[in-house]
């Protein structure tokens, strides 16, 4: 193995030219937390969970190329504390009622929270009012659980070739929009096999059938952390 390498937390990581830090880390089996990143899609760089320290700066590992000889720091107390704060903010700005959510146990937002040992938050919960869209026969759009990662937007555009989703509004008024004649999911042409549905990290886009079929204890993140079952 004579290719270029860099280090993550002191461990040598090989990479090929053009790879991002997170791509090289994944191939080396090193978990860098993330929510808006997905290996199938171009990086979005918005959730900031994958921010690492490199070259004296804090940079998103999903959109920063690996550089030979660079020393990257991933698991530092400072970074994990900032990541935990980011996840807390995602929880308080949405409505994440885990005990009543069919995605619970298979939810990346939840699993990242566990991994970062998020137990509570000092922030007040906003309890925003967001519109539920139950107009589709097979799929529920629960905007309460949307974290604006835009994975459905990218998947619908790049894989499904349907361009069904967009994010509209600013700040706390951000909402997932549906590109259909009446703005509702039912008339959008979304189908169960769509990648847009499968890549949602939370329960925002969820098949209506099959909820709670997998018992507690056998769900994706029961008994293993997101670092062990990262996709």
């Amino acid at each position: 193995m004579n290719g270029p390498t860099f280090t993550i937390d002191g461990r040598s990581v090989p990479f090929t030219e053009g790879q991002s830090i997170i791509q090289a880390a994944r191939e080396a089996g090193i978990y860098i937390p993330h929510l808006c990143y997905h290996p199938e899609f171009r990086p979005h760089g918005s959730c900031r969970l994958c921010v690492v320290e490199a070259g004296g700066r804090s940079v998103p590992a999903c959109s920063t190329p690996a550089v030979a000889g660079q020393q990257v720091r991933n698991r530092t107390e400072r970074l994990d504390r900032m990541r935990r704060t980011l996840v807390e903010l995602l929880f308080v700005e949405g409505n994440h009622f885990c005990p009543a959510c069919p995605k619970s146990g298979n939810c990346k937002l939840q699993a990242v929270g566990y991994w970062l040992r998020m137990l509570d938050t000092p922030f007040p919960y906003l309890f925003p009012r967001r519109e539920l869209d139950a107009s589709h026969h097979d799929v529920l759009l629960d905007r309460d659980r949307c974290i604006f990662c835009e994975l459905c937007v990218r998947a619908s555009r790049e894989v499904d070739r349907k361009n069904l989703f967009a994010i509209g509004g600013k700040g706390t008024r951000c909402r997932l929009l549906v590109n259909s004649p009446d703005g509702r999911l039912g008339s959008s042409g979304l189908s169960l096999g769509d990648r847009a549905l499968q890549v949602c990290p939370t329960g925002a886009l969820l098949p209506r059938k099959g909820a709670f079929h997998v018992p507690v204890g056998r769900r994706l993140y029961d008994g293993r952390s997101i670092a062990e079952s990262d996709e």
């Binding site: 009622f97 005990p99 919960y125």
Partner: peptide, 18 residues
């Protein structure tokens, strides 16, 4: 100690906040 989801984040009763 805040014990459980409701003490920590409002929990299921907070569904009425909408």
């Amino acid at each position: 100690v805040a014990l459980g989801a409701c003490a920590v984040n409002g929990g299921i009763p907070a569904l009425r906040n909408r």
